[in-house]
Design a protein around this nucleic acid. Sequence first.
DNA 1: GATGAATGAGTCTTCATTCAT
DNA 2: GATGAATGAAGACTCATTCAT
Lengths: 167, 167, 167, 167
Amino acid sequence: MSMIAASAGISHGLLYHYFKSKDELFTELVRLAMEGASGGIDEMFDHPGTVIDKLRHFLQDAMNEEARLFFLLIHQARASEGVPEEVRMIIGNYSIDWFVEQLKPLFLEGQRTGEIASDDAGQLIAGLLTVMSGTMILHASDEENIPLLNPDHLLRLVLAPAHIQPL
Amino acid sequence: MSMIAASAGISHGLLYHYFKSKDELFTELVRLAMEGASGGIDEMFDHPGTVIDKLRHFLQDAMNEEARLFFLLIHQARASEGVPEEVRMIIGNYSIDWFVEQLKPLFLEGQRTGEIASDDAGQLIAGLLTVMSGTMILHASDEENIPLLNPDHLLRLVLAPAHIQPL
Amino acid sequence: MSMIAASAGISHGLLYHYFKSKDELFTELVRLAMEGASGGIDEMFDHPGTVIDKLRHFLQDAMNEEARLFFLLIHQARASEGVPEEVRMIIGNYSIDWFVEQLKPLFLEGQRTGEIASDDAGQLIAGLLTVMSGTMILHASDEENIPLLNPDHLLRLVLAPAHIQPL
Amino acid sequence: MSMIAASAGISHGLLYHYFKSKDELFTELVRLAMEGASGGIDEMFDHPGTVIDKLRHFLQDAMNEEARLFFLLIHQARASEGVPEEVRMIIGNYSIDWFVEQLKPLFLEGQRTGEIASDDAGQLIAGLLTVMSGTMILHASDEENIPLLNPDHLLRLVLAPAHIQPL
DNA sequence: GATGAATGAGTCTTCATTCAT
DNA sequence: GATGAATGAAGACTCATTCAT
């Protein structure tokens, strides 16, 4: 907490004025990260163009430098022991399954248009999300040695072979 | 250290009998994990069959439940501050670039046989490795909610479109 | 550290608020002790009277109850292994030789006036300092059984025979 | 205990075969040191020559390199807290007062012959012993910087002025 | 006699948290 | 709002001691 306060240029005493405890601060950050993530999905649906255009936009939006630390945060929240109950609830609400449900309509449409591979949509989505998160976490922990993947590369996991383009 | 010792059913005192410090224990684990990883590559080359067969074997070997914690360990070693100097050296020796160099001959052959996509081999390998590691780390941190990916799914990142099969 | 904190009536946590480590606290004490010692020499030169008067004042000043623990501290610093580098430097700066040099002018004058024995001044000073320190350390460790020596008794080590008085 | 055993070239297990505990080993060493000290006094009385000859022999015997660690040991025993009860008893038996009593006959004879200063014999002896011990302890803890005093120098504390010789 | 695996009390140190000012 | 002195639980590490072999 003292280090966080110092980073923010305030005393740790004042940090406790804004957040009752480290758990509360952590919970707040997780909440923000999750809202950002679901906001990204809404934005994707508003994006013009084909299914592939929307997906590419979603990936580009999620896989930028700013989003890095959010992924790391969620990872910590998922991976650590002794995480506050409230954080576990937030994470539960935004489970992989929840994201799968959000994206399923898009993928089903993509399969109708022939853009998306004709495998089980849920499996494709879960795979894409897992791989995207994993990539971001790796990059976030060691940016020097682990480059961000080209979103088009990741798309190969879900595209119909006919739509795969050179990198 | 006391928790580790308790997990092993010994006193922390005895743990210090075998490892001079937490750093030394950690270093030893990282060393083991890294040797396991490079061993997996050797084994892949000995595996019979096509390039795809070899790669599938490599992924299945790496992405099993036992290997889970090794990925998590390496991730910790890469991501954390205050990691012992020796660990940083070991990790430096087995960089992403090193793995890329090991796998490049196989990928070049795969491109000759038409099994592997005709993009830059280095980029394909780095992408596959990143995604594989990221997936394992996510799964290792939260096995209940994040299923292991089907290795064939990951292979889509590097296969020539003609060789992509339904999942 | 906990015992020291308890002696001071504070928690060990607060002690660490003021001193980053046991080494730093120890270093600070050694520094203070050494400054006190060299201050005693300055004061001696300002003291009025003959060479013997000055020396007697110096000994009385150094050999009081308060100074006791300082001698013990310096002794620990000299005698112990694993003493912080900075402490070794401070002690090196205030070596026996350094004190000898400080006192030499006074002793040479004393030899001119006939108050000080006509042996090698450096040897006389080193002997007096050693004996004074040793006495203080013994007294500090076991005040009940080892009485403080009368400074006049110590002076016999350096006085010309003609100036020796009954105790 | 492990370090002591290693110095002796045996395992710490075997050290416990010979000494039931660290306290017992320490007690044994203190006992030996004290017997050596009182043996030195007996030997002094057997030494031929004048009172000064005997005293000089005593000092030379006590202030050699071998005796160094014995003085340090006794000092530790006197100075430390938590010293075993038996050690405290041994030290109590060989108190300063006990040594004073042992040496008093010699000093009284020396005062008759005019060799020893005509101050209170007890005070002279206590002073000489204190100074001798202190010197040895200092030298033992830091032999490089603190030279052993010339025994003749120490004798000045107790000699009649007429018998003081150049160093 | 001899070894070293095994234990646990005690020590230094960190850090989240509280609270008087 | 803002500060930092103050606390204590918890973790890394050491070392005297025991005991099976």
